[in-house]
Design a protein around this nucleic acid. Sequence first.
DNA 1: GTGATTGCAAATCTTTTGCACTAAA
DNA 2: TTTAGTGCAAAAGATTTGCAATCAC
Lengths: 142, 142
Amino acid sequence: MDTMTPDTQRPFTQALDRLRGVGLRPTRQRLALAKLLFEGGNRHVTAEILHAEAQSAEIRVSLATVYNTLHQFTTTGLLREIVVDSQRSYFDTNISDHHHFFYEASGKLDDIPGDQVVLSAMPSPPPGTKVKRVDVIVRIES
Amino acid sequence: MDTMTPDTQRPFTQALDRLRGVGLRPTRQRLALAKLLFEGGNRHVTAEILHAEAQSAEIRVSLATVYNTLHQFTTTGLLREIVVDSQRSYFDTNISDHHHFFYEASGKLDDIPGDQVVLSAMPSPPPGTKVKRVDVIVRIES
DNA sequence: GTGATTGCAAATCTTTTGCACTAAA
DNA sequence: TTTAGTGCAAAAGATTTGCAATCAC
């Protein structure tokens, strides 16, 4: 690997590696969407938003493919789905342990680093079940 | 008030008082839905479920009215909306401070009493904003 | 080549809306 | 009365699906 080239100059390679890492065939659409998603820090997107960004970037990709891709990325662990609004799905490029502020007025999300929320007491789940995740959502008045 | 009559035998009165308490006109539909919702402990319902229950109980009420009513009850503080699934809205008859287990496989919710979850550290919201609520959702593997 | 992926349009599902009709006060 | 509430059917918005065309390997 060319260690002299800054990350920001190898988005294609990064996206390619990411897709390969999870066994998804690197198609033109998936590469372009991965590039949009994973360049430039943590992002919270809806299918609609990502599709619009793709259009702006002259990337021809259908909304159906955007949905498919977001779900494939989520299933393979590249993204995480955040449920804060019963009307729309949000996807988060930050897959580390963390929580969220949700601004109801604007529909915007902000990450809360995992270490800023401490759950010092937690009920045990019913016997035989497994906790997939604990989500803490701080809702900001709309 | 007739203090000799057990609560379970005065559902109508209870529902009526509840509606009056929040200033909603006690129509036949609202009374019947309030009865279904608030009799028999804490419940988590979707519009679809409540509508089906009404049908079974021979209560003629349209789905549109069920939606209207659920939202009116939520706005007036009789119900609380729980967001766990980006495809469907759940309403909770328990309006006290508490959290939820969500069983992804079945779509069922269980209450976690407020005192069983202790958030010993919390980030401050951005200056000038106000926290409406903190939701803790323990997702049980589907 | 051949099996995976994509695009499109249609379908689906939940929720909302417009508006004439009905009922509570 | 008079004004709020209801039902219906249509509309809207998000997401999924079926299938032929296209692409990656």
